[in-house]
Amino acid sequence: MTNRKINSSLVFLLLLMAVITPGEALALQVHGEPEGLYVHQMAHLHYIFAIGYFFWDIRRSSFTGRGWRYLQLFCILMTCWNMIAFVGHLAGVYLDPQALLQADHYFQTRLLGPFTLNKYLYFITKLDHLIYVPAMFFLFLGLRSFYLSVVKTTGEEGR
């Protein structure tokens, strides 16, 4: 029997033992409930980093024109929204579920006192669309400006 054949047989036996008697192999990690929230919060931080980098690169590239200014405003507002959302999620985690009382209808839901910083933050960050919508509006304006300027340039070249 050659050495090569002996090595192949040993590897096969080890694999067989692992399959038949797994024991506490811990091959798959179990993800607990808070992990989703953590991933989401990290995604917000990642978003802040990415959009900050995007903003910095627009300025570094010295792009001029109205479209690029709108895009910078979008970046600023979107960064603010991400921070608000990040804080809002934390406030939601720390909010006592008993602090929200739904009477007859959902519309009559109320945030009960006594009011703490966390409760105020929870309430205010629930209004995050007041930042998010203007951010999307400036994104729309930016792209519209790019489009119009390209149409104008193309028309001039055409003439």
Binding site: L101, F107, H129, M136, F137
Partner: peptide
Amino acid sequence: NSISMLPTVLVDITGSAAN
């Protein structure tokens, strides 16, 4: 003693549509 959450609901719905 309490604040109505209705404004947050309305802002959420209209803001989502606007987005």
